[in-house]
Design a protein around this nucleic acid. Structure first.
Length: 394
DNA sequence: TCTGGGGTCCTAGGACCC
DNA sequence: TCTGGGGTCCTAGGACCC
């Protein structure tokens, strides 16, 4: 097909674990677990090296379980600054191949490479050059998928992990994917795949047996998406690609949450943690130079179910104290009597650029205090200065 | 037995207005 | 004693991703 879009997806293999192994040769060749946090309780595996994966350890698994499988596995806690740094370097490198690049996550990128086969000899040669440059510069590997849209490219790269590459033209999609289990399709998670299996849909081929109406009635919008993906032979007009070149876009929400070492019960304890979280959220909001008017809180119970509250307030702000007050207002509306809390979080959304323009002298003063506090924390590290009332838990 | 923390997007029901 | 049918906004909760 002429002028058919070609999207290249590259996904780093076991990214966090690979970066750790690249930085520390002692970890190379060993089963390595990168944990969500230093304490090994109540947390999950963020990344596992391929040596650990071979033993059955994988990301998302509880760290306790992973260490039961392999008590001698190397363990490091995640160092997000390091991974972000490498990720940025990779993004810069990829811009030399195509200006149309989208960073989908810390370790995944999409490139529009339509027509670039002529410049690089072939799409295969282009993919290989990217893989080789990454290996040479960063001592890690990535898997490449090239196909007609993001989803198909991503499926292709996943199929060839680790360190592989697959080119999947539209005409090959149905035959290549026919036996693919539905759970392997990005966007179909545990819940959807259970529902599909109830309908005797287990593989990509099975997905093709039902009509668009069938999917829409049962699954609504997602149903239509599923129908479309199962029918790659139907070319959707303009698969709307909005490449975000250059500047990263503003986030849509900013939040922090924390799983406690031990469950808490009292309003006082919940408030103390809420204040800490509000401080963290406000700090990041100010760093983005944004204000928000919607605050969301959630409390997760020991059964993992959560209760939450959210409210759109009239005024926008980025003041930690105001965020805390709003969080308490929402907390009052939730019935937290006798609720045991395992984890809790605050997030804010609905942003506008910070005006830093206050009618009230008090608000002006708060703003100056926040700024001073941020400046100190920026210079000397987070949590050098924080409100006295959260001393007990920091 | 265990299940983090950062997000995005969707749905469904109720409130409210005309 | 009877109350339709849109539309929009708000909020709770869930699904999914890395």
């Amino acid at each position: 097909m002429k002028n058919e879009p070609k999207i290249l997806h590259i996904d780093m293999d076991a990214f966090f674990a690979s970066v750790e192994q690249a930085y520390n040769p002692r970890l190379k060749g060993k089963p390595l677990i990168v944990g969500g946090r230093a304490d090994k309780q109540r947390t999950v595996v963020c990344a596992a090296s391929y040596e650990a994966k071979a033993l059955g350890i994988d990301s998302g698994m509880s760290t306790q379980q992973a260490l039961r499988i392999c008590p001698n596995a190397e363990f490091v806690s995640a160092d997000s600054a390091k991974y972000l740094y490498v990720s940025d370097q990779i993004a810069e490198m990829l811009k030399n191949y195509s200006p149309q690049i989208e960073q989908a996550s810390i370790d995944e990128f999409y490139l529009d490479i339509t027509g670039l086969d002529k410049m690089f000899g072939s799409y295969f040669d282009l993919g290989m050059r990217i893989k080789q440059e990454i290996k040479k510069k960063f001592s890690i590997t990535g898997s490449v998928g090239i196909s007609v849209n993001r989803l198909m490219s991503k499926i292709a790269s996943k199929l060839k992990k680790p360190d592989g590459m697959m080119i999947m033209p539209r005409a090959d999609i149905i035959s290549v994917l026919k036996d693919l289990p539905i759970q392997k399709i990005p966007g179909i998670g545990a819940s959807l795949s259970a529902k599909l299996q109830d309908l005797s849909i287990f593989s990509f081929s099975d997905m093709r047996k039902f009509s668009a109406d069938f999917y829409q009635q049962r699954f609504g919008k997602i149903g239509l998406w599923m129908y479309a993906l199962a029918h790659p032979e139907i070319v959707v007009a303009d698969e709307e690609i909005d490449w975000v070149d250059q500047k990263p876009k503003d986030p849509k929400s900013i939040g922090h949450s924390y799983t406690l070492n031990q469950n808490i019960y009292t309003r006082g304890e919940i408030e103390a943690w809420m204040q800490l979280l509000a401080e963290m959220v406000g700090f990041r909001l100010r760093r983005h130079n944004l204000e928000a008017n919607t605050v969301h809180i959630y409390l997760r119970k020991p059964d993992m179910k959560s209760i939450s509250g959210e409210k759109n307030f009239k005024e926008y702000n980025n003041d930690s104290k105001q965020i805390f007050k709003r969080a308490l207002f929402l907390l009052d509306k939730l019935n937290t009597k006798n609720v045991e809390v395992r984890a809790l979080g605050i997030s804010v959304k609905n942003f506008m650029p910070a005006t830093n323009n206050f009618l009230l002298a008090d608000a002006q003063k708060r703003y100056q205090i926040c700024n001073a506090q941020d400046a100190i924390n920026k210079r000397f590290g987070d949590w050098t200065v924080y409100p006295a009332s959260i001393c007990s838990i920091v």
